[in-house]
């Protein structure tokens, strides 16, 4: 632990933010395991990919701002990158699942709602 001169409030804030973000991401993983159908499970990891990620990124930015003594929010890159890529992966995955359901099982789960 190399935290040199972190003010008390900042140390506590960084810790709580990281803990909250990790907690949300953990909840997402719990959802991934507990939901019953694939389409419900797709929603779960977005918890960690949105707010969970944002909280941890903010914690990291806050910490390094104080430790390095200057404002260089590198971690925002991860935030932007993840916000742009998560929808792409999830949409592709959902479409792949839909395609497989339609062809393999001959069952269209979307048909009833039209």
């Amino acid at each position: 632990m190399t935290s040199v001169d972190l003010p008390a409030w900042a140390a506590v804030a960084v810790g709580l933010l990281a803990l909250a973000g990790a907690g949300l991401s953990f909840l997402g993983a719990v959802g991934l395991c507990s939901f019953r159908t694939f389409y419900e499970r797709v929603h779960a990891p977005t918890l960690g990919a949105t707010l969970g990620m944002a909280l941890i990124v903010v914690a990291s930015v806050l910490f390094f701002t104080f430790v390095e003594g200057r404002f260089m929010p590198r971690e925002l890159l991860i935030g932007v990158f993840l916000t742009v890529t998560t929808p792409v992966t999830l949409i592709l995955l959902a479409r792949a699942a839909l395609f497989r359901d339609r062809t393999e099982r001959g069952r269209d789960e979307t048909a009833g709602d039209a």
Partner: peptide, 9 residues
């Protein structure tokens, strides 16, 4: 997609 609970398919 970024709002949990809805997914664009």
């Amino acid at each position: 997609t970024a709002t949990p609970g809805t997914l664009w398919v």
